[in-house]
Design a protein around this nucleic acid. Structure first.
Lengths: 206, 206
DNA sequence: TGGACACTACTGCAAGTTGCAGTAGTGTCA
DNA sequence: TGACACTACTGCAACTTGCAGTAGTGTCCA
């Protein structure tokens, strides 16, 4: 049982789903906490059936069949055991930052493009969360009794996105003062920033 | 050529490294932008040699040999082409948030423990960056002409860590007002938060 | 002085994960 | 009635991780 298996099991704990529904639901709701590919999300419920944590049956509609998965009592028990294990450390992959870190074999323009691309990726995610919250106000939550959890989670996402957006603005201003991407080194400004960071002070709030 | 290959190639562009040095250096410096396993980092330079982007030779010290890798001019050219491709979208994996989202099959105590574990993981990373900045002030950067890039990258990390730490404090206070993890739903407080989020307003700054 | 232990320096392998291509039925709009 | 988007998957190659295993080196303590 991997963390991804438990994630799917937790979804099955809410209600029975078809394979397709699971992939769509998991990608929508877990995208910012536990992003997984459609392919994997089709495989996980099958694994759960193998463990005895879910049952499956086929439903037919016309000439098409689909697999419906349902959690078992063993599955509910397994979910309880998940809670006991140590949480994995966060893992953050941002290719834009990797490119920034090695920006000295490209141009200032490349850096600006990378920042623009990061900004548009973040804006898309940010907007999606805001829209989701509007939909909760409007039509309610698909599982109303769980609204408080979704909303607390959403506060995390919005704070993160806002921070990243603020940082992008900050980075643009810094880069504006660079004559080039390379060989700048420890300028006065960089020393100032380094000093702030070494004192664990924020660099954005001036 | 994967992004990980380019990451290693970018390191080789700085100077020749042994396999072991590459694994250590990549894990230290890329940990928060492009976290990769030691195992992979041992394999990547071999792949680069296969592409003609690096050369390798063995050095011996006593009874022990180690592989030294050096970038080729084809490798430098390949690095330039990397810049042209679209940046991948950020990917954020935080198991603690997944657990929070499904906190309703556990206790309030479980939620608090999850928040504590997230906090201590973040604190560790946060401290590492602050220490690194202190070391730049103290002994300088291993590649002095690249200090400005490392420091700009560090500003990102510190802002992120501060935001997460603030959110953890916020989440603790919210959870303190919960009588239980489940069936809370759209309380007055949750509606207030949802409204703020739907208007894209921050929830932390009250 | 010799044994434990941490660090250097890797490799092999199984298992987890992704992206893409492929297959096929259904609904809608022009 | 044909195109096109959506539903509903599966197979497979390639990427990635974690763990176990191998082996030399340096240091400290008893």
């Amino acid at each position: 049982m991997t963390t991804s298996s438990y994630a799917v099991l937790a979804l099955l704990d809410l209600k029975p789903w078809t394979g397709y529904e699971l992939t769509q639901q998991a990608q929508r709701s877990l995208r910012y906490a536990w992003p997984k590919s459609e392919r994997l999300l089709y495989s996980e419920p099958k694994k759960l059936v193998g463990f005895g944590y879910a049952t499956t049956h086929k439903e037919t509609a016309g000439n098409r069949t689909r697999n419906v998965y349902e959690i078992t009592s063993e599955g509910r028990q397994a979910l309880g055991e998940w809670t006991g294990s140590r949480t994995e450390a966060p893992r953050i992959e941002i290719e834009a930052l990797l490119r920034l870190l090695f920006a000295d074999h490209g141009s200032i323009e490349d850096v600006r493009r990378t920042l623009d691309e990061l900004e548009s990726d973040i804006a898309e995610h940010h907007q999606a969360v805001v829209d989701l919250m509007a939909s909760y106000l409007d039509g309610g939550h698909p599982f109303p009794s769980r609204t408080h959890l979704s909303v607390l989670f959403a506060t995390f996402q919005v704070e993160m996105f806002k921070t990243i957006e603020k940082w992008i603005e900050f980075a643009r201003h810094e880069v504006d003062d660079w004559p080039d991407t390379r060989d700048l080194g420890m300028t006065e400004r960089t020393e100032e920033l380094t000093r702030l960071l070494a004192q664990d002070r924020s660099t954005l709030t001036e």
